[in-house]
């Protein structure tokens, strides 16, 4: 007999070893997330997938599903918490959508739209962060990095270890594995998984940014909960 958890009162089947996020995704239940991707080891850093499990807040992407769990996902309280988490992500970096070529294809923005975030609420940091445009085909705009580590995990899978996170707190930043620290001197190639995995506009493939005009992009047309992973892959203009 299959095992089940309850998500917002709905019975969702799972197999041992699955996380709550995996069980939910398999059943077509959307839990907002940014650092989670089914192809990579869970990281649990963005906290957007916070759900209430038997009365306690947990990250759905890292918490194992267990028989009889009562999970709350779509509640006003969690929506408010997630909106606030998203606002904190926005003020920590420099997320100026009108000047970002990822706008409309950006998962951070899409989650914010989904959560009906209309303002940043908190004072902005205006942190001064560098731009690395040294690589002929790929650029990094550190302003938009949310430290989800998806590029770190993807580059590990690429067998290259190009990226890592260094520093703590406000000094935390994405670093590049090369003698100069610049992307052009790293092993990164345009075909790498790590290039297209960024959920924001931090790592961008050059030369394709405006192939699809603003207003006709993925999340201009659909809410993120209705967009499949395969469609999100199209966010990079391929």
């Amino acid at each position: 007999m299959s095992k089940t958890i309850s998500i917002d009162g709905r019975q969702v089947e799972f197999v041992d070893g699955q996380t709550i996020m995996e069980a939910a995704a398999a059943a077509g239940v959307y839990i907002p997330h940014l650092c989670h991707h089914p192809d990579f080891t869970p990281h649990g850093s963005c906290k957007l997938c916070t759900v209430k499990v038997n009365g306690r807040n947990c990250s759905a992407c890292t918490f194992p599903a267990q028989e009889g769990q009562e999970v709350l996902n779509e509640t006003d309280e969690l929506r408010e918490d997630r909106r606030m988490i998203t606002q904190m992500l926005f003020v920590e970096g420099n997320h100026f959508c009108p000047s970002c070529e990822k706008s409309g294809n950006c998962q951070l923005q899409a989650v914010a739209y989904y959560l009906q975030m209309l303002d940043d609420h908190f004072p902005l940091f205006f942190a001064s962060r560098e731009l690395d445009a040294s690589h002929p085909e790929v650029m990094i705009d550190h302003d938009r990095c949310i430290f989800c580590t998806l590029c770190v995990r993807a580059s590990h899978l690429d067998g290259k270890e190009v990226f890592a996170i260094s520093g703590r707190g406000i000094n935390k930043h994405l670093i590049v594995n090369s003698p100069s620290g610049k992307l052009q001197d790293s092993a990164l190639e345009a075909g790498d998984r790590a290039v297209d995995i960024c959920p924001t506009g931090a790592i961008l493939r050059k030369g394709i940014g405006y192939r699809v005009p603003i207003g006709k992009r993925i999340f201009d047309l659909k809410k993120i909960d209705a967009v499949s992973l395969a469609e999100q892959g199209g966010a990079h203009g391929e």
Partner: peptide
Amino acid sequence: VAVGACAINGGLPAMRNF
């Protein structure tokens, strides 16, 4: 009412903050 990107997060003029 804060109207538009600049009222909400400083927008383009705030690029000088760096």
